[in-house]
Design a protein around this nucleic acid. Sequence first.
RNA 1: GCCUUUGUAGCAGAACGGUAUAUGCAGCUGUCUCAAAAACAGCAGUUUGAAGGUUCGAAUCCUUCCGGAGGCACCA
Length: 870
Amino acid sequence: MASQYNPQDIEEKWQKHWEKIGIHRADNDSKKPKFYSLVMFPYPSGDLHMGHMRVYTISDVISRRMRMLGHNVLNPMGWDAFGLPAENAAIKHSKHPEKWTKENIRFMRDEQLKKLGTSYDWQREVTTCDQDYYGWTQWLFLKFFNKGLAVRKEAAVNWCPDCHTVLANEQVEDGACWRHPETRVEQKKMSQWFLKITDYSEELLKDLDTLTGWPEPVRIMQQNWIGKSTGAELRFVVESKPNVQISVFTTRPDTVFGVSYVVLAPENPLVQELTTADRLEAVNKYIDDTLHKTELERMSTEKSKSGVPIGSFVLNPFNGDVVPIWVADYVLMNYGTGAVMGVPAHDDRDFQFAKQHNLPIKEVISKDGQASPELKEAYTESGKMINSAAFNGLDSETAKEKMTDWAADHACGSKRVQWRLRDWLISRQRYWGCPIPLVHCESCGIVPVKEADIPVKLPIEGVVITGQGGSPLSSDESFLKTPCPSCGKEASRETDTMDTFIDSSWYFLRYADASNKEEAFSRAAVDYWMPVDQYVGGVEHAILHLLYSRFFTKACRDVGLLKASEPFENLLSQGMVTKFSAQSGRIEKMSKSRGNVVGTTDFFKRYGADSARLFTLFAAPPEQELEWSEEGAIGQYRFLGRIWRIVSELIENGVVAPFDGDVNQEKLDASGKAFHKLVHKTIKAVTHDLNRGRYIFNTAIARCMELVNGMYKYAQELSGKSVEGNGNGKTEKPVGDQPNTLAPRGEKLSQEERDLFSFAVKSLLLVLSPMAPHITEELWQRVGYIKKEGDSIHITAWPAFTDALTIDDEIELVLQVNGKIVNKVAAQRGLEKTVAEGLALNDEKVKSKIDGQSIRKVIVVPDKLVNIVI
RNA sequence: GCCUUUGUAGCAGAACGGUAUAUGCAGCUGUCUCAAAAACAGCAGUUUGAAGGUUCGAAUCCUUCCGGAGGCACCA
């Protein structure tokens, strides 16, 4: 009898063996076509669970299959190892962040990722908190600095009181810190370092169109984030102070004849300048009130539109109307010019505001060019111009341009493009990050550290992390004091560290050349590997990491470091893994805090990594959510057990042996032919499902299951024949001392039947091997394919299929009358249309349905159906 | 409020505008067993969220509505 399938006996053995023979190493100099397969590297938080494993499994299957297709595959792994949790853990366990991080990395690498059976090239491992990584991060920063892409500006920035640091706009969600949804960020005015991502706004937007290998939703999210709006800047002269103008940005210059007021943001300095004495008290009170509102209160669209007039008026340059200036908090200081023109008739917010404060509503555009008796709501579409003097009758889209031109001609406005994207704030007042390599010198100002003096090392010894009172770097004299690189006088280092998103914005470049001691990466290496052919990661990075990395790639290109303009050619956003949580009583994202995690170690021990891999691939298509189910996962274990049993018995019974050739189809009986076709159909289907960009693993596995089911059936049929010739579909009772076997005995079969089994087993193992790498390798060896040390199923060529053998000769022809199915008949494939039609018209059931009525039309779909319309 | 996405047996999921259901889980029956488990063999189940429309023919395309998921949100 065959031995029991026991993953523990085989998985670790092969993992070690693969590492030893080095089949996962990428070659920087190869004749094969390159394939760069990348998965978003993890933050080493300590313990991965089954939910995390999904992304690594998906990416690994893609990598393994591309190797079998003859590619030189780069499949690297590393650690996004700087960040706040290390500091928090340090405070909690009084363990240095570096120690904590390194311990986590060891566990996650050796006990989790390796035991999943991933095929990484560990020689290229990168750890962002290592000097030989962050030194190059600093080096890149200096390149950007020298190119004017890194600048220091005073700005209102987001401060998270929990993290004790500032955050970039992208890291604030609903007015709260992305790490602490319960913590409201505060606005502080600070002088900080920024990377000028806005220099690339236009290109970042435009190139989204070239990213056809990205999911549409991600592209749309980036597009919205960049937020380009085209319109005009119009200038309104203040009536009482003709030398002062209020600039407004509008996307609707065509509505300018409908302006009935102008609004300033409370923070706009013009408010102070233009408020008249009699309004001063009211205006100051209003501003004071708004400043005490939370960001959320201010942003709420539900609430009414508050505001007060400031007493001054402006002149509408188009028609000379004198309209009041108001201050209102629905206008934001940090977008556009901090002032808007109020056109109640054609903007929802302005309409609401005007209704509330009894301001005139003047219609200047209507659908048909006719004025409406009374507007019940703002008309925000385009239409025909009315009440707009010389522009009357024009289509409003045309008027937009003409009126902008008019404004330019009369020196009261111009065309303007406004972006939502802001510069990337990268300073962090934290310890566990990459030090910004700059020096503040009293005489020379801000001076970059010399390239030769990089890395600026993060002090490790004697650092005390309390989480209070600023970064430990600012109180570490040995770090702080340094001679000025320019004049040599005593100066002090910048104590801010960089946002950790910088570390992850270029790690994929370092993988290309990870052990380079001279440069961050060699031009030849990155130009060879970049762009990444297939990136896999969670959709939570749709904006943050993916936008930053795109920016970094373009900036590196412009600094002359590489050729590529876009880092990631194809992107797969896998769905999250969920599980029922007893805490909440709901199905939720698998996470520690929700108490619904499934650990890896225990599962690997009981059912093996192959079962875990198969389940996560099988239970849902990759981009959809996946609900973890213990029963479902065990089902995959059962499936692997079925493969193990049948293949083992076929080997033991002398049926299956190494096979390299074609099965002689002619010498097989009907069920042999059918099974032979099933094998070819399976190869075709799995090949198709795993093809680049498709990656529908769930159906691929289902096809493998069909093949295994077919193999059982065929084996049983042949063993029935070989025992007693009983073909009734029931399992034979053991006869005498003969055990109850699944597989026939080899000597009872013909050569062709044995070949067929050998071919079927070989094909099954090959197409399943990227998904279940251990069991397939073990059985591959047991069949006898591994002859010398370097052999492996994983570097064997992907199997081919014969298309002719994937097509059935006989088909079932569906006969319809008026689109309703009346009968199904067996027919030869490839019937002439007229023959098929005749077949249908002569069918008894069809005839009785037609019942002598006249036929209006006959539709024939070849090899599918005939529809008779009466 | 706007945008994206999704709704198919009890559950997870298949299905170029052409037979609604591959595959797994759960369920039921049988073989084996003293019995059970395991294994093996087999069975059953929905008319595709709802209503319209286009079509010879709609799960698939269009419209409206209902439900789920995600994103954006006084961005002028």
